[in-house]
Design a protein around this nucleic acid. Structure first.
Lengths: 157, 157
DNA sequence: CCATAACAATCAACACATTGACATATAGGC
DNA sequence: GCCTATATGTCAATGTGTTGATTGTTATGG
């Protein structure tokens, strides 16, 4: 019964409440609409988040370890394994033994995965620009940075 | 192959990409950490979103229909039904026949649900203030409003 | 009163996310 | 060579989210 008893506390609580509700709604909508835009490919937003991580020039050749992917996407290992299994079934990624560390396997885009990712750029781009149609570039950066700080706050809470 | 070929297009794409990745991460973290804060109650963030909606003074007496809850939280009917089932099992909510519309049932907090919600305020408050510790009130409002606009963009995309 | 339309509830399938516990294999220090 | 820490995988349980299909139930217009 701390700040929440004062008027200022109640206002503060209300703002936070709305903020997290919007976060919740935006995330659900992102996944729902993202899947619709990818209709033909049958890929979820989570799946193209993985493909996008692997397609970056820095990692494109050698691939990424599961550990690196977990840290990049901030997912549990068990969950990521399941996503990778589905991507492997689609022949979009492959798991290769890391020559430098026998324990680790590197996740890499296959040829087909790379081609698919290229083809996906168009609907992804349409999804991005469509959902952000009312945002200026400055506002997008602002939102990105605020979410970045929220993420940091949430990891240390 | 539209804007994405130009430098400006690539920058734009990159910003959007980071933005949605952060949204994804923030949402996952919110649910994960939210559950941890509610440890003793064994409630998820989705569950206290429902309780919070029902606890509002406007609806506290008469309750809300499933349809209204769906619109408020922006969930599918099938999913909300499952959440309500779990809340009913915990005796936090009850479903009552709507006197004005025989098809619809009103969802209301039970006595126990109301008491539980009151007791939950403390950990929720702690979660909110902890995760937003680096935010000024103005920044919280800013983030809330940007998410609000993103939500609108996502519904119309 | 009946037919249609709208709304509500339910079943099934799939994907995603968490935690916890356990298993396997390898790296690296002693 | 052994021991511990690390990396990955696996099994299981639970909760959340979507879609599609189906079955009721009620409102309303003819």
């Amino acid at each position: 019964m701390s700040r929440n008893d004062s008027v200022a506390g109640r206002v503060q609580f209300d703002i936070a409440n709305r903020l997290f509700l919007r976060l919740y709604q935006c995330s659900n909508l992102m996944h729902k609409m993202g899947v619709r835009f990818m209709g033909d490919f049958g890929a979820t937003t989570q799946q193209w988040a993985v493909l996008g991580a692997l397609a970056r020039p820095i990692v494109h050749e050698k691939g990424m370890s599961v550990k690196e992917l977990i840290e990049f996407l901030m997912l549990s290992r068990q969950n990521l394994t399941a996503v990778l299994d589905r991507l492997e079934t689609k022949h979009w990624i492959e798991r290769i033994k890391d020559p430098e560390d026998g324990r680790s396997r590197l996740i890499r885009l296959t040829e087909e995965g790379n081609r698919t990712w290229e083809a996906m750029q168009e609907p992804i781009e349409a999804f991005y620009s469509g959902s952000l149609v009312n945002f200026s570039e400055a506002e997008e950066v602002q939102l990105y940075q605020l979410l970045d700080r929220l993420r940091n706050g949430l990891t240390e809470v």
